[in-house]
Design a protein around this nucleic acid. Structure first.
Lengths: 143, 143
DNA sequence: TTGAGATTTAGAATTATTCCAAGTATTGAC
DNA sequence: GTCAATACTTGGAATAATTCTAAATCTCAA
């Protein structure tokens, strides 16, 4: 972390524009997401968050994650039937889902985003790209 | 439907190559998906399937959907925190998710698929594109 | 016809998420 | 600063979605 000076005003302001407050719990949940960018589930966030904030509750973790998502600081990632995952990387990127281990990885998008012709009436706000396959570890193991 | 001649051998063969059998339940669940292409959840499939096959059970619907997915006849669609949806359209297309009503629509892809440079070691099997926004009805209503 | 293996079924169990009510904290008006 | 209004956190209950289990049934091939 260590970027409190830069992170703090941003997160505060982002929450504020959605009518939400910056609380110790929300900041901590955000820090947990920033610390290990492996797209954890709410449950994993809860376990990690408890290390430094033992009294935080599951309900609060869900609340914080929702607050971060609605204020545009975090992305919600749904790639399979399992639990929703969370991603604090708001740069344009896509997700790679390993069909063997279930891991999720960020993949940078260098090229221009794909153009999709919208049928009449549809208003697109944004576009998501995901890729399924084998991550390096699983690919090596299957060889 | 009425395309039994064309549908039957295909579904049978597809299931067979995954070591699965064509059963009345599996065929019926597939027909339900083909009949109304609104990306129903397992629950909705269950309710529709019961109309013509009153004794079918929820567990069987899940089993059938899994069988159809693993044999490549149906796609599983996960766009939000809610229940998984199912799509029998196996042509290249992407999904539009309406953030207001939760509806899911197929959008044809006319252009070439986007190119994404894979980091070393990742083996991509396929690529999924989804678009979020407002469907025509909801867009009109919000005007 | 028989036996092995696949499938269906109802219901229990599990997992993921949301809801609720009570207590606590924060903010703005005064 | 004080007070009321509002937002937030919490534990636990409730709900929703999915998976598991064990027994009955079916199908295929020998």
């Amino acid at each position: 972390m260590g970027s409190v000076e830069k992170k703090m005003p941003r997160i505060n302001e982002r929450l504020a524009t959605s009518g939400l407050r910056l609380t110790p719990q929300r900041e901590h949940v955000y820090d947990v997401l920033l610390a290990e960018r492996d797209h954890p589930t709410a449950e994993q966030v809860f376990l990690r968050a408890k290390k430094d904030m033992p009294d935080i509750s599951m309900a609060t973790v869900y609340n914080c994650l929702d607050a971060l998502v609605t204020s545009g600081l975090v992305k919600q990632v749904n790639l399979d039937r399992g639990a929703t995952r969370f991603c604090p990387n708001m740069h344009e990127h896509c997700h790679f889902y390993c069909e063997s281990c279930g891991g999720v990885y960020d993949i940078g998008l260098t090229r221009a985003r794909p153009e999709v012709p919208m049928p009449r009436g549809f208003k697109a706000t944004h576009l998501e790209l995901s890729i399924r396959g084998l991550c390096p570890d699983c690919a090596a193991r299957k060889k």
